[in-house]
Simulated scan of single mutants.
Amino acid sequence: MNNLNDPPNWNIRPNSRADGGDGSRWNYALLVPMLGLAAFRWIWSRESQKEIEKEKEACRQRTAAFQRDLEARYHATISESRRAVARLSLELEKEQNRTTSYREALISQGRKMVEEKKLLEQERAQVLQEKRQPLRSAYLSCLDKEADWQRRARLLLREFEEALAERQSIYCSLVLPRGRRLDIEKGLLVRASTDPLAVDLEMAAGLSDIFKHDTHCGGVWNTSKRQNGRLMWLYLQYWELVVELKKFKRVEKAILEK
């Protein structure tokens, strides 16, 4: 409201400019703070936007660095896994080659034993033809004696075969205790070193070879013990040939000593 006691020019009149007065200075007094507030708001918004962009850029850089670190670790892990797989594959190949060489050596030895057996049979036939009756009775007598030795040796091999099949079955099983297999192996090695027949057949070295290298299993659902193992069956065939060969050698030795 206007104060009637004040001079006229001190009162605020809306139309003072139209009347030729200086009331416009009050309008300028209101305009300046508003312009200052608008300028401050514009400056503050611009600075805030800069800070936001700066934080976004820093966040992107941290994310990129973290991603690079993860990728480096991932590639390092993959490389290490590949090296481990390559190393294990090489060791497996070496083991397979070693087993193959053992198998081939046994097969070759078995063939030699068969050839020696044939030669001995030929020599025996030749001796029989040359000496006929005088040696026939002695030969048959020695053959009967050695047949008993052969029977006991084959019985021993059957017992070893059952024990080896049981041992291999435990080796291939996921539930049977490992200690039981070790007990069987220990018992077989002790018997191979103490039983005269086993010592004569030199079975201890073959058993150690089987325990060390025969890792073949028939499969998860396999229920037949004869499907497990490979090297052990080759050795059993080899020992049977040794029994047959030693029988004839013992007969030959007995005849020559008479």
Score class of each variant (00 low, 15 high):
Gln133Thr: 14
Asp22Met: 12
Trp10Pro: 00
Ala163Pro: 06
Phe160Thr: 00
Arg226Met: 11
Arg60Glu: 10
Asn222Thr: 15
Asn2Glu: 12
Lys54Gln: 04
Gln237Glu: 13
Val242Leu: 09
Arg46Cys: 00
Phe40Pro: 00
Glu257Ile: 12
Ala147Gln: 11
Pro14Ala: 06
Ser193Lys: 15
Leu140Cys: 12
Ser48Pro: 00
Gly36Leu: 05
Gly218Lys: 03
Gln96Trp: 12
Ala192Glu: 03
Arg158Tyr: 13
Arg87Pro: 01
Arg82Ser: 10
Ala39Glu: 01
Phe40Gly: 01
Ala165Asp: 11
Lys56Ser: 04
Lys247Pro: 02
Ser193Val: 11
Glu71Val: 10
Gly218Cys: 04
His75Tyr: 03
Arg158Thr: 09
Asp19Gln: 14
Leu37Val: 02
Leu4Asp: 15
Arg178Met: 13
Gln49Ser: 06
Arg167Tyr: 15
Leu70Asn: 14
Glu91Asp: 09
Glu71His: 08
Asp214His: 07
Lys118Met: 13
Tyr139Phe: 09
Glu104Thr: 09
Gln96Leu: 15
Arg226Gln: 15
Gly20Gln: 01
Val85Ile: 14
Lys212Pro: 03
Arg132Met: 12
Arg230Pro: 00
Leu241Glu: 01
Leu120Asp: 01
Leu241His: 01
Tyr102Ala: 09
Asn11Ile: 04
Glu130Pro: 02
Leu92Tyr: 06
Ser173Glu: 08
Tyr74Leu: 11
Arg25Lys: 10
Arg111Gly: 07
Ala138Val: 10
Asn97Met: 15
Val242Tyr: 00
Leu119Ala: 13
Thr99Arg: 13
Ser89Lys: 09
Leu201Tyr: 05
Lys94Arg: 14
Ala125Tyr: 05
Phe211Cys: 05
Leu201Asn: 05
Val243Trp: 01
Glu95Arg: 10
Leu207Gly: 03
Ile255Asn: 04
Ala153Arg: 06
Arg167Phe: 15
Leu92Asn: 10
Val199Leu: 13
Ile12Ser: 05
His216Met: 08
Ser24His: 13
Gln133Phe: 09
Arg191Gly: 03
Asn9Leu: 13
Leu182His: 12
Glu121His: 12
Ile78Thr: 02
Phe160Ile: 02
Ser137Tyr: 12
His216Lys: 07
Gly206Gln: 04
Leu90Lys: 06
Gly187Trp: 07
Lys56Thr: 08
Leu135Gln: 03
Gln237Val: 00
Gly187Cys: 11
Ala72His: 08
Glu162Cys: 03
Leu30Met: 10
Gln61Arg: 08
Arg25Val: 10
Gln109His: 07
Phe160Gln: 00
Trp44Gly: 00
Ser173His: 10
Leu245Met: 06
Cys217Gln: 08
Thr63His: 04
Ala76Thr: 05
Phe248Gln: 12
Cys217Pro: 08
Val220Met: 06
Trp44Ala: 01
Lys225Cys: 02
Cys217Ser: 11
Ala58Asp: 01
Leu70Arg: 15
Ile184Tyr: 04
Ala76Met: 02
Lys246Ser: 11
Ala204Asn: 14
Gln150Val: 14
Val114Thr: 08
Pro8Cys: 09
Met113Thr: 05
Ser24Gln: 13
Glu115Pro: 04
Glu57Val: 04
Trp149Phe: 06
Glu257Tyr: 14
Asp69His: 05
Ala18His: 09
Asp144His: 12
Ile52Phe: 04
Leu140Asn: 11
Glu116Pro: 00
Ile78Lys: 06
Leu4His: 11
Arg41Ala: 04
Thr194Val: 13
Leu119Lys: 14
Leu128Tyr: 01
Tyr171Glu: 12
Asp209Asn: 14
Ile52Ser: 03
Glu130Met: 05
Arg17Ile: 12
Met113Phe: 08
Gln129Ala: 14
